[in-house]
């Protein structure tokens, strides 16, 4: 069996080469004929589709519908559920005072600040790691990738404990230095910074890895040619490194944006959205509205709004990657 597999593998390389030179085969068949011909395929794809449709997509459609009603624990019990049109959306986004609107703005700030530091730190560290002839690279890399490798859930809880006002690591360290303790999680503004710090710690390793991969694929020749022309390190960075990093960093940054925007664990584990909703971002806010107030329709409304935002970001992502590919071809 093993020998047969190896033969198949070497044969495949040979055939792949030949296949590229064969002309395509054209056939016109009717729809029913095509369905019959590919009968087997349906057996393969249907199980997964059925599961996804019934368990996920149908509920999502149901959720969109929910957002136009006023379903919550009270209306459900008293049978006063009715269609309310866009009232929920107006309630959420209508005024600048609206709580959800504030949460949405905070989510944007959270996302932008985090991704900025992820990319910048990731890049700086990758550049440092990429110096030729640097010793102990492997050790550095292992340390640096730990925040990414350890499950977010665990590290979020660990940070929460370190931020504890009396027994937490940070305040005890400050006490050692004779400094006053910081209200890491009990002061609204500080808490927001505290969770951002955690998320930066969590997110920069990924960017470092992507940047490292991209840096390694830049040929040394470019730099050598630039050296011969007498280019300064800044010029080399600006005109060689940065442009060649773009194809890898840009998609990674957009991925990071999506992940950061929808991140739930970090803030929920550490502050639960508090104190007094000071750290609520959309994902935690929706969860809290659902679990504490049982406001089903409002939660569904928030879902829809977030979905629309994410679809827009994803579409931007697709356009950007298409543009990058077009550039590459040149």
């Amino acid at each position: 069996m093993k020998k047969w597999r190896e033969e198949v593998k070497s044969l495949s390389i040979k055939i792949l080469h030949e296949e590229k030179q064969m002309p395509p085969l054209l056939e016109k068949t009717s729809l029913i004929q095509r369905i019959k011909k590919n009968k087997v395929a349906y057996f393969y794809v249907l199980p997964a589709l059925v599961v996804v449709f019934t368990v996920s997509l149908f509920p999502i459609a149901y959720g969109i519908g929910l957002s136009f009603f006023n379903l919550n624990l009270y209306t459900m019990g008293s049978g006063r559920v009715k269609f309310v049109g866009l009232k929920n959306y107006v309630k959420a986004l209508g005024s600048l005072d609206a709580e959800f609107f504030a949460v949405l703005m905070r989510t944007f700030i959270w996302t932008v600040v985090n991704v900025f530091f992820h990319v910048v730190l990731g890049l700086i560290i990758a550049l440092a790691l990429n110096r030729p002839k640097l010793k102990w690279k492997g050790i550095y890399r292992t340390f640096i990738i730990l925040p990414w490798a350890v499950p977010q859930f665990v590290t979020a809880l660990v940070w929460k404990m370190m931020y504890h006002e009396q027994f937490g690591f940070f305040n005890q360290f400050l006490k050692l230095l004779g400094l006053p303790p910081v209200q890491w999680l009990t002061n609204g503004k500080i808490a927001f910074i505290a969770v951002i710090i955690v998320n930066i710690w969590l997110g920069f390793p990924f960017m470092t890895m992507v940047a490292t991969g991209a840096l390694q694929s830049i040929s040394r020749e470019y730099y050598e040619a630039a050296d011969m022309d007498g280019a300064s390190p800044w010029q080399k960075f600006r005109y060689i490194t940065l442009p060649l990093l773009k194809p890898a960093m840009l998609p990674a940054a957009i991925l990071g944006t999506i992940w950061t925007f929808t991140n739930f664990n970090v803030i929920y584990m550490i502050t639960g959205g508090g104190p007094a909703k000071a750290t609520e971002i959309v994902s935690t806010y929706q969860f809290n509205v659902l679990t504490r107030q049982n406001a089903y329709s409002m939660a569904a409304t928030y879902s829809v709004i977030v979905s629309i935002i994410l679809i827009i970001i994803t579409l931007i992502n697709m356009k950007v990657t298409k543009a990058l590919h077009a550039e590459e071809v040149d």
Binding site: V52, V55, S56, L57, F58, P59, I60, Y62, G63, L66, T262, F264, S283, Q286, F287, L290, Y296, A299, A300, S303, V306, S307, L310, I311, T314
Partner: peptide, 15 residues
Amino acid sequence: YMMLPTTAALVPQLL
């Protein structure tokens, strides 16, 4: 489906 947030289906699923 991949474009939507992971919590999109949560509320209806719960119900």
